[in-house]
Nucleic acid binder design. Sequence first.
DNA 1: TAACTTAGTTGAATATTTACACTAAGGTTC
DNA 2: GAACCTTAGTGTAAATATTCAACTAAGTTA
Lengths: 231, 231
Amino acid sequence: MTSHDNHAFKPIATVDLAIFSLSPAGLSVLLVRRANAPFSGDWALPGGWIHIDEDADLEAAARRVLKEKTGVETPYLEQLQTTGSRSRDPRGWSISIVYIALLSADDVAERQGGMAAEAEWRMIEGEGVGCPIAFDHAALLKEAVGRIRSKVEYSSLPGHLLPVHFTLSELQSVYETLLGRKLDKSAFRKRMAEADFLEPVEGEMRRASNRPAQVFRLKDTRSLALFDRTI
Amino acid sequence: MTSHDNHAFKPIATVDLAIFSLSPAGLSVLLVRRANAPFSGDWALPGGWIHIDEDADLEAAARRVLKEKTGVETPYLEQLQTTGSRSRDPRGWSISIVYIALLSADDVAERQGGMAAEAEWRMIEGEGVGCPIAFDHAALLKEAVGRIRSKVEYSSLPGHLLPVHFTLSELQSVYETLLGRKLDKSAFRKRMAEADFLEPVEGEMRRASNRPAQVFRLKDTRSLALFDRTI
DNA sequence: TAACTTAGTTGAATATTTACACTAAGGTTC
DNA sequence: GAACCTTAGTGTAAATATTCAACTAAGTTA
């Protein structure tokens, strides 16, 4: 290519994932305990090398890592950002391509067995988890949490954390939990209707000791719907 | 680290830039002509290897490339996305970290000399330039143009393409050009005032054969202001 | 069957947006 | 220098959207 071709820099490159799910009190992220140096024994975001033979592209690598750690194959997945520097890994100049994955509560419930050993869900408190984590993963997690909280304001993001089937009241409740404030029921329903990302599951009603509620599902589990305005 | 440590994959990694400026009819992007294989002689987004000794982190690498190609040191710079795949470069599995840079019209005017030879401004028409470009750069450019057009709707982005000093009418005109539609003057001025990213240059007025206009500048040339709603 | 609970809708008061007209401040023309 | 032209900048009334809270609906439980 250029004169640089001879000493073309090949960095250490990993794909790391901030995998989120919903716990009753709010957002949780999946952490794994590192088995080897550096940071052996510390908690970290799950990640791994790109497998040149196995992975066709970056997103495929992210899906592979996700499947290895959780057993889940069809999450909502989006690229967050890439960090790279001389100092973030003691082994040398390294790059991390970070993805955000959102797991449906159904996936979390079903795949308890498929979870990697030494993996653990940790509640998000404020901008991160309460304990130190390896590398610059605390900063990456902070970015991820910021992106998620921001997108709750103007997208269908919370719908991707619920079970496949849910009611409007359940959806509203997740928005309220993630936003940390109450929403008006009628305004909320109007926004959801406008954004047009839900479809009723015909004939399915959630029954309790009161008026039954219509059950809905996402029209598209692979992409977010964006609102014209904040919720 | 893990058993992968022995065959830790080290991809080809470059930092590539979509450098935008304003021409009278709209947005332009800087392309360079490739001197070597692959795609020798083709136009491409400017980019380069990471210099392990010179660059502390990815953004530093992007700034270095930008300075080499344009002479500009203080642009607005933001990371767009990272692509990586087996097939995007014939030399093997490769990664490109793509940045968007916005150049002030003053920078473009002043640094005509500092520009790299074999570099050229190309008008954006629709989603890209009218001619084929190397690698997957057409797709990257399309993403970059999409991000820019989207951010015009809810941010101060167009202000970073103007000369350092400008009037509100000039700013509105850039918004209109990039959006492809006319805006209401009074609503536009209200948005700008709310967003609070402009400061008047005291005593400076743009004079013509009509009422003089107050001259403004950005309060912060390194970051975008985001609006509460679309413009 | 009355009471209770949550689902889902309606509507009046309030705030925001939009469209457009208006005033302001120069230079230019005659 | 007065009338006129052009663009800067502001004001306002009508239309639209949001907010807040009450209302009706449909089930279970006592």
